[in-house]
Amino acid sequence: MNRGVSLGAGLRALALASCCLAAGCVSFQYERNLIERVPDDSVVATFVPGQTVLTDVLAGMGAPLDVWEGPDGAPVLAYGGVRGAEWNVNVSLPVTDYNSASFSFTDTRSRARGYMLLFGPDQRLEIVRYGLLADLRRTYARRRPAAVEDEAP
């Protein structure tokens, strides 16, 4: 009987010790991200392709998250943000002596979801699309020819 009590206490102690030791290398994380302002759908709904001009969009929506060159050299404006939460399991091993948390503007743009507004050469709105901004950029960005290396000596 005494042996049973001893075994139970030992298991509890082992579980507690394992929990403490595991905290250093295995952990669970629930993370919510609120990144930049999410575009207002009601404002975007007032934009009319062929009529709305670049100045109207900047006045109504403010500074875009991203700007890139459209297929014919005209501006493409992207408005978006990140709203999401998820569970993660982190397993870490001491492979480096130093690490630090960091974030970047590029990171925000690659994860943001929102509106892309493509303008024509006359600065009038032509196309409005909603989606992952990184995907929209791949579809609607101007493709410039690759550089050609000069083979002359």
Partner: peptide
């Protein structure tokens, strides 16, 4: 071993 995290940027 459980972390609750919120990031606002």
């Amino acid at each position: 071993v459980v972390t609750f995290l919120n990031t606002d940027r």
